[in-house]
Design a protein around this nucleic acid. Sequence first.
DNA 1: GCCAGATTAAATGTCAGACATTAAAATGTA
DNA 2: TACATTTTAATGTCTGACATTTAATCTGGC
Lengths: 251, 251
Amino acid sequence: MKIDPDSTVDLSAQIAKAIRDAIIAGDLIVDQRLPSEAELADHFDVSRPTVREALKRLAAQSLIRTQRGATGGAFVNRLRFEDAYAQQVTTSTLLLSMNAVSFDVACEARYALERACAPLSAERRTPDHLATMRAEIHRQGQPGLTDEAFCASDVTFHRALVDGAGNKVLSYQLAGAVEAMQPLMNMITFTARSREAIVALHTDIADAVEARDATKIDATLVKLEAYTRELAHSVVTARAQKAAEKEHKTA
Amino acid sequence: MKIDPDSTVDLSAQIAKAIRDAIIAGDLIVDQRLPSEAELADHFDVSRPTVREALKRLAAQSLIRTQRGATGGAFVNRLRFEDAYAQQVTTSTLLLSMNAVSFDVACEARYALERACAPLSAERRTPDHLATMRAEIHRQGQPGLTDEAFCASDVTFHRALVDGAGNKVLSYQLAGAVEAMQPLMNMITFTARSREAIVALHTDIADAVEARDATKIDATLVKLEAYTRELAHSVVTARAQKAAEKEHKTA
DNA sequence: GCCAGATTAAATGTCAGACATTAAAATGTA
DNA sequence: TACATTTTAATGTCTGACATTTAATCTGGC
């Protein structure tokens, strides 16, 4: 592991890269202890604060964890699925919001991916997945539910569908696609009628999952996507109209 | 933005979280300049190195960028698709290797997702995507290509297929699934015969994409998945046999 | 008045050394 | 042996300083 002290790049960034590369290459294995900060500072010929900045960078990516005390230090962290989920969701959410990704594009991606899980989910779903889906459908029908809670329940429902595929990698990849949509969905006002329609589609999906009918799941997801996009469009149209009216008033 | 100085959690982690939350909530918008390190230190009532550690954490997630000089400072970074790709690939790769994800599980996830792109790609692919696919097929047929180069070309081919869907979000989500497989694929030895078979399937896919035949693409991807898994299994079997022989010799 | 070069100022990048805190291991003692 | 104490080695944090970069400002000369 070496760095170039003459480079214009931050020393801490270079050190972080060197260690990260070592982890990726397998030179440092899970749970292995890194040298102490003082030793690393010595090795790279930099000060301790610089080493610390590098370690914090790695910690931010969940690549290492630190422990205080006599036998403490920095350890290569086993990247867990849950940690990766969280990062994935954060990154995806910011990506959508910062790049002004349209509702349609995000929605299309999400349903395309979700439909990919349908056949596997039909085959492998357990009673547990089914129970979660039914419970969320019930929650979604409750009056007095806020729009945000409705959206959150929607996410839980769809995650149960995805998890039903029984493939952790798939669940991880989908986490971003499904959850990152939430801020976009939250812009929609769900009327009683639209909630009813969505609950009906969700029920169809749950029924199809129970019957292990992959074709039916797929078809219903297509309907749900179309309906969701329709809803979003009506929101946009309504907003545009209001803006036009306001414009008219002030003029 | 506030932190709890009595918490057992690192101050730098708390500060990073506070700023991250502000970015996610939209309180800090893209390209906005954060207060200087000294001002942040003052605000959170900590020292400058602690603030710096927090900022490095955010920089590691591409949430901010820093600039030196008189008008420099830390700025909220527009998370670009390319940056997100890279992070996604790194995370996915480590996730698979550190959790000993089986070839079958990863492969299943990858092809399920890729098949989700097929209908869109059939509809929207441009001549460019097609040209990339053809070029990679040609490369894959060249004798003397190393296994690694073959794998790399394979990845490029499949990315062209995915990109053909013309949905950036989809491309981003797929990046991890496709590229993270590469280390696993690299364990396979591709014989001349198996390369020939793969090239034939790739050709079928390219032809189907050109003909905008979604059904055919899907069917061929299913075949390709089956063949890939078969190849991987034969490698595992061969290894097991060798190990058994060695065991026999030493015994 | 205008332009080129020198100066200044404000920010990040880096260093050195110190002290605080934590937690395990070593040690001492009943 | 069991328990309390001390030691020790690590991370966490602070202070203060200097180095470096870069844009803005000032200054002379034309």
